[in-house]
């Protein structure tokens, strides 16, 4: 199951990278490549960050709750 998912993902990535040069698109290769990359980077950054924070907080609270259930005297 895992391997099927992995190979699908790899195939998807390969296919999305392969025909890059064939795309007749005016905005793919614009004058400032750095600007495009900055948009991409900030998009990824802004999208991942909140999920990371919530996941971190969730895991921390879970740990606290588990810990306090095991030895209730330990938490204030």
């Amino acid at each position: 199951m895992m391997r099927v998912g992995m190979s699908t993902l790899l195939a998807f990535l390969a296919l999305s990278a392969l025909p890059e040069a064939l795309w007749a698109c005016p905005v793919c290769f614009d004058s400032s490549d750095e600007n495009r990359q900055a948009f991409l980077a900030t998009t990824i950054f802004l999208s991942i960050l909140p999920l990371g924070m919530v996941a971190g907080a969730g895991i921390y609270i879970r740990k606290r709750v588990r810990g306090s259930r095991k030895n209730p005297a330990n938490t204030k």
Binding site: E20, C25, V27, C28, F39, L40, T43
Partner: peptide, 13 residues
């Protein structure tokens, strides 16, 4: 970004 499909974003995105 699906609100910006025609705002000139990278089509790969």
């Amino acid at each position: 970004a699906h609100h910006q499909f025609i705002a000139g974003i990278d089509p790969r995105m």
